[in-house]
Design a protein around this nucleic acid. Structure first.
Lengths: 112, 112
DNA sequence: GTTATATGCATAAGTATTTTATGCATATAT
DNA sequence: ATATATGCATAAAATACTTATGCATATAAC
């Protein structure tokens, strides 16, 4: 991701969430979808995405299905059962993180 | 930080925000404050904190004041003028990140 | 009295995740 | 003919963190 340091660590969660909502997606599609949904604010780099997808596949969270469209290769990924459970965990962790960080940042602690 | 991968990248912002609210703090105090404010959920490790404080000082965002209390060393850090501005930037970036990631995670994009 | 816990700072080695820089290939627009 | 879009991939470097130490004083527990 070529934006802020803050996005570090959230790539996996983003991928899983997108696959959870869209049944199956291929790598390039994920980069374009994220860019569109964030109004260009978040750009996933290929150097981060592909190794991440391979890792998720190796961990048994994703299944792959290779197809050819317009003479070009596509690798569709979709969640396994294990992947669906992990998506739920990751989303809960993200919500907890946001809640915690919001609490830290939205108050003036010198008054406490 | 010994918790989630999600916290990666937010340590600097947390430090700056705490110093912004508390005028001056020392390292150990920061670790305890964060632990208390997050009900033990977020634990900043010393291996992450001290190098980060040194870096912020080197960048001119923090000033240091060494004192001795009860025969023990303390290094109080406080924001410089530059540090105060950077705090504002970092907080804005954090809010933007939260907004973006929330949008990505709280919707069902397959319906769009 | 000595052992654990708390206070306080520091650094080095290892790990994980990302950016940056490439590489290859096809299709389409200029 | 050249640039841009589509599509996957990996390797080197940078970054930020965890884990493991090290040193030192004070206090509580046993």
């Amino acid at each position: 991701m070529a934006n802020s340091k803050l996005y570090k660590g959230s790539l996996t969660t983003i991928i899983l969430k997108l696959l959870n909502d869209n049944q199956k997606m291929y790598g390039y599609e994920i980069t374009q979808k994220v860019k569109a949904l964030t109004n260009g604010e978040l750009n996933i780099t290929e150097g981060a995405l592909y190794p991440s997808l391979h890792k998720l596949e190796a961990e048994g969270l994703l299944d792959v299905e290779v197809t050819k469209v317009d003479n070009r290769l596509r690798k569709y990924y979709k969640l396994t059962e294990k992947g669906t459970k992990e998506t739920s965990n990751k989303l809960n962790e993200l919500q907890a993180y946001i809640k915690t960080i919001q609490a830290l940042v939205n108050s003036n602690f010198s008054l406490e």
